[in-house]
Amino acid sequence: MATVRLSFSPAPVHVRTARLVGVAVARRAGVAEELLDEVRLAIGEACTRAVALHNQYRIPDLVMVEMSDSDSYMVRVIDRAPIEASIGLTKLPPDELADESLTDEALTTGVGFALLAGFVDDLQVRPVDEGAGTEVRMVWPVGRR
């Protein structure tokens, strides 16, 4: 099993770096080529969510991304925001998406979760084991090498 761990300051500019690393490790792990766009999008969404939460709660701590492969390719994106922040993860129905009263933040959060749920078959969002924060855990199958 190989593990790659990346930590970054909670700034939007670094999300792209996390995506690039995540896809490079996925390719190396043997994730099917046709899934790599989905891997890229899902890692980006999870990191965007983490950065937004750190900024919302003025948390300077690093966002952590851990990629590992064994029987499958697993990516964990860990934030340090209060756990109640994760309750906002709800998918929005179509008639609410363009509703005038919906804030940009709520829309982006809802759409981001829809993308995560839509692109990742094996998705878990759960509290971290110690301290504040949530872990978004995503798993993709790997081919035999």
Binding site: R40, E45, L97, D104
Partner: peptide
């Protein structure tokens, strides 16, 4: 090449 939820939010805006 790439479009995420933030970009989608901008388009809805």
């Amino acid at each position: 090449d790439f479009l995420d939820s933030t970009g989608l939010g901008v388009l809805v805006g």
